[in-house]
């Protein structure tokens, strides 16, 4: 079963149009959703969560449709927004008490275990939390009910590298259970490179890539060539290029370039940057 399927999802705003977005996240996998600020990541996530109305298309979560008539499905979705969503005056105990009365599958034991693990202070109220603590609280909450799909919107941005690493480990642990899946948006691509199985790349509301990470990394390379070599390359081999004093660096399809051209593996970050450059021309 697929954890998440989007078919021809569209949303129209003044000056911005999203889609059609198509993507499939199989169960047991992590999909990274990358793109610049304003590319449409948050809009897509809000559409998935039914926080805004779609103009067209289909959304299927764990094989079901999200609606207020389907509270059981919401139990299985753990959501982490880009900001902590809990009001200022609450303590951990308060959060536990409130959410116990919101989620039927809430586990206080699990919640406090994660809070402990994340070093979230028990005595303070949320107002006094740092951004990192708030993020960790949201993640602890998302993991403390019967979540099968985690949906995270910029959950790791604004955190220091140590905390980010800690959280990525928790995600990897979560995904050990094959029924679980994660859909995570971020512009910190190195994080996603570490943990994701699939990468979806969105640019100006359009999906440019939706591919297995390993396939992506294998397919693409950064070629370092002279201007003459570059102009000899087949047009469909080059995704994007950058001129420098020595010649041209180009993101290329690895199997479509001659063997005598020097090339390095392309990182996800490079793939994204070159793609965007290409599409700006």
């Amino acid at each position: 079963m697929n954890a998440l399927e989007l078919h021809n999802l569209t949303k129209q705003y003044d000056g911005f149009s999203l889609g059609p977005v198509n993507l499939t996240l199989p169960s047991g996998c992590i999909m990274g959703f990358i793109g610049e600020n304003g590319a449409g990541k948050s809009t897509t996530i809000k559409l998935i969560l039914n926080l805004i109305r779609r103009d067209g298309g289909e959304i299927s979560i764990l094989g079901q449709t999200l609606s207020s008539r389907n509270p059981a499905l919401k139990e299985q979705i753990g959501v982490v927004m880009d900001e902590s969503s809990f009001p200022d005056n609450l303590s951990l105990k308060n959060v536990d008490l409130i959410l116990k009365n919101c989620y039927q599958t809430w586990s206080s034991e699990r919640f406090f275990r994660y809070c402990n693990k994340f070093d979230i202070p028990e005595k303070k109220v949320i107002r006094e939390y740092s951004r990192g603590m708030k993020m960790k609280l949201s993640i602890a909450v998302a993991l403390s009910h019967n979540s099968r799909l985690l949906i995270l919107d910029e959950a790791t941005s604004g955190l220091d590298p140590v905390v980010r690493d800690e959280i990525l480990d928790v995600f990897l642990e979560f995904i050990q259970d094959e029924r679980n899946s994660i859909f995570i948006s971020s512009h910190i691509i190195s994080d996603l490179e570490k943990i994701c199985d699939y990468i979806t790349f969105i640019h100006k509301g359009q999906i440019l890539l939706c591919e297995e990470k390993d396939v992506l990394l294998e397919q693409y390379a950064i070629a370092h060539c002279t201007k003459e070599q570059f102009s000899a390359l087949a047009a469909d081999a080059v995704i994007g290029a950058r001129q420098n004093t020595f010649g041209v660096d180009a993101l290329v399809l690895r199997h479509k370039i001659p063997r005598d051209i020097a090339s390095d593996p392309a990182s996800l970050e490079e793939i994204m940057l070159y793609y965007v450059k290409e599409h700006q021309i």
Binding site: L49, K74, E75, S85, F86, D88, C102
Partner: peptide, 11 residues
């Protein structure tokens, strides 16, 4: 806190 948009993802 932007509570509502989170609350709506709960059951």
């Amino acid at each position: 806190a932007k509570w509502d948009r989170y609350a709506l993802t709960m059951p």
